[in-house]
Computed example of a mutant assay.
Amino acid sequence: MPKPKKSIAELKATGSYRPNKHGRAEDMPDLPVEAPRMPHFVSVDASEYFNEIVALGVNMSIVTKADSLIIGLLASEIAEWVELDAYVKTEGFMVKLPTATGFMQTTVNPKIRVRDDKLKVILKMLGELGMSPAARSKVTVNQKDKDQKSALGEFLAAATKRMNA
């Protein structure tokens, strides 16, 4: 598991900050964690998934208002995947389709491939949002949020104060 990246403040505090190496990270915008508004294109079916993803992202401190578009697209993809999965379950994995000569031939349901392609897109988008295990290992959370939300954070803050005193 890779070591999580230190924030600019941590690098400066430890004396390991190098402007030529870390300078671009300092110029990145630091947006506050906020629940984004639902885009207008999100369907009624997908709105449930949108709200669930936003709630998870806010709890993980990784979602900002700027993420509304990608979360809306992700929610729409999930809603379409659920619909395709329901079709596959009702129609079955094998369906009868007419051939060019008019005979009925049993073949694999073509919706399975579309459903699986949607799943690949969903997993990629989850990774972009930092909601997959591999992506979470790369996400840096504000030190302030870490300290306030966890018992370990409280312990580390107390230990740091004690060492500095």
Rank of each mutant, 00 (worst) to 15 (best):
M1Q: 12
M1A: 15
P2A: 11
K3Q: 10
S7C: 14
S7L: 12
I8T: 02
E10N: 05
E10H: 08
L11N: 08
A13V: 07
T14Q: 01
G15F: 10
S16F: 04
Y17N: 01
Y17R: 03
P19A: 04
P19L: 08
N20V: 00
N20P: 01
N20Y: 11
N20S: 13
G23P: 14
A25T: 12
E26R: 15
P29I: 09
P32N: 15
E34I: 14
E34F: 09
A35N: 07
A35M: 06
P36K: 00
R37K: 15
M38D: 13
P39D: 14
V42N: 13
V42R: 09
D45S: 11
D45N: 06
D45C: 05
A46D: 02
S47Y: 11
E48S: 10
E48I: 12
E52V: 11
I53Y: 03
A55C: 06
L56N: 10
L56V: 05
G57D: 05
M60T: 05
S61F: 06
S61Y: 09
I62N: 00
V63L: 10
V63F: 00
V63M: 01
K65Q: 10
K65P: 04
A66V: 04
A66W: 02
D67Q: 06
I70V: 11
I71P: 00
I71S: 00
L73N: 04
S76Q: 07
E77A: 05
A79R: 01
A79F: 01
E80K: 01
W81Q: 01
W81H: 05
E83R: 02
E83L: 08
D85G: 06
D85N: 15
A86D: 15
Y87G: 00
Y87R: 10
V88I: 07
V88E: 07
T90D: 11
T90S: 15
G92I: 03
F93N: 03
F93V: 00
M94C: 13
V95F: 07
V95M: 12
V95E: 08
V95T: 10
P98E: 14
P98M: 07
G102N: 05
G102H: 14
G102T: 13
F103K: 12
F103R: 13
M104E: 03
T106R: 09
T106K: 10
T107Y: 11
T107E: 14
V108A: 04
P110K: 09
P110C: 06
R113G: 14
R113Y: 12
V114I: 09
R115G: 02
D116H: 01
K118L: 02
L119Y: 04
L119V: 02
K120Y: 02
K120F: 02
V121D: 00
K124C: 06
K124G: 05
K124R: 07
M125K: 03
L126D: 08
G127P: 10
S132D: 13
A134F: 06
R136P: 03
R136W: 07
S137Y: 11
K138Q: 01
V139I: 11
V139P: 01
T140K: 04
V141H: 03
V141W: 05
N142L: 03
N142A: 05
Q143Y: 02
Q143F: 00
Q143M: 09
D145H: 06
K146C: 04
K146S: 01
S150T: 13
A151V: 15
F155T: 15
L156Q: 05
L156I: 03
A157G: 14
A157H: 06
A158P: 13
A158V: 12
K161V: 02
K161D: 15
M163A: 15
